[in-house]
Structure formats: structure tokens, C-alpha cells
Amino acid sequence: MNQLVESVVHEHVHRDDVGAKIGMWLFLFTELILFGGMFLAYAVYRYQYGDFFALASKKLDVFFGLINTLILLTSSLTMAMSITAIRRESKKLSMLFLALTIFFALLFMVNKYFEWSAKFSSGIFPGSTELLNQPKGIIIYFGLYFVMTGLHALHVLIGMVILLVMFFYLKSDVINSDYYIMLENSGLYWHLVDIIWIFLFPLFYLIH
């Protein structure tokens, strides 16, 4: 009887790496459209308040944005290399690359923290009197800025947690040179987070 339970319980869990990848991509599309909704809002308001957006954009520090862009691009590189490494059966190297990716993610968050606290200390945050006294276009710009980069930062955080889990899977050989789809899917997620930032950076920091 017990054996029957065992066999029945295991029957439905079958391995299909391509299926898992399809599932992941479909999920990424929902993320893309989720941010897409906000990009749509951004487009409409930039169309309506173009001059104010350019004005407000000057209050952002391009340097912060540029550094964070470079950090994320590099983390994408180490992420992709981590997968190549595990497929070439070098577990140590794969773990190293993954650890680097997590480190860059952390660096991004630290940077973000300083950037946001600078904004907060100069009185710019949603609902602040300083901001409410500004023209409407500027209120909207900062509303979008905080919501969009905030939601993106949330995704970076989630990504960090996922990558940490992957790190321990790598360590304990759950992920190995034959079974690495979980690492690959986490990588896909991480690259999507990067792609979102690739668009956020010029749209918020580089308007003149």
C-alpha cells in the first residue's frame, strides 16, 4: 500500500525543462506588461507635461543612475556567466559568479537607498509639502519616479532572494551540470529586471 502511495504521488511530477522555460517566459510577459502599464502612464503624462518633466529631471543625479545602470549590466553579465560555468561543470566558478551577481544587486540597493534618502531629506517625497507646492507636472513626475523605480527596486529585492536560494541549491548540488533549469529561469528573471532598468534610466534621468 505504502509503495502504491509513493508511486502515485510521484507520478505527476515529471521533468520537462522546456516546459519550465515556457512557463517562466510567460510569467516574464506578465511582468513586462505590468511595467508596461506604468510606461503607458509615463508616456501619456510626458506628452502632457513634457517641459515640467525636463525641469524635474534636472533634480535627479545622473551619476547615481549611471552607476546603477553599470552595476545592473555587470550583474547581468555575471549571471549569464554563472550558467555557462555550471554547464561546463565548474561548480566553484558558477557559485562565484552567482555570488558576484548577488553582491551587485546589493550594491544597487545601497545606491538606491542613498539616492532616495537624499531626495527625502531635501523634502521630495510623495505628499510632502515641498512637492505639493510645485506645479502639477512636477508632482506627477516624482509620483511616477517613486512608484516606478520603487517597484523596480522591489523586483531587485525579490531577485536577490531568488538568487540566494539558487546559490544554496548550487552548493548542495540540487542544481548541477545536467539539471540547471532553475538557475536559467532565475537568470531570465534577473535579466528582465535589468531590461526594465535599461528603459527607466533614460526616461527619468536623461531628459533635457
Binding site: 505628499g127 505639493l132 507636472g137 508632482i139 506627477i140 509620483g143
Partner: peptide
């Protein structure tokens, strides 16, 4: 929650 103004017409939203 925060009154960011993305939709609220009083803050410029549409």
C-alpha cells in the same frame, strides 16, 4: 496611501 498624483486630478493626474 501616499497621494502620488498618478490618477488624482487634484495633483495633476488624469
Amino acid at each position: 496611501w501616499f497621494g502620488v498624483g498618478i490618477f488624482d486630478p487634484a495633483l495633476g493626474g488624469d
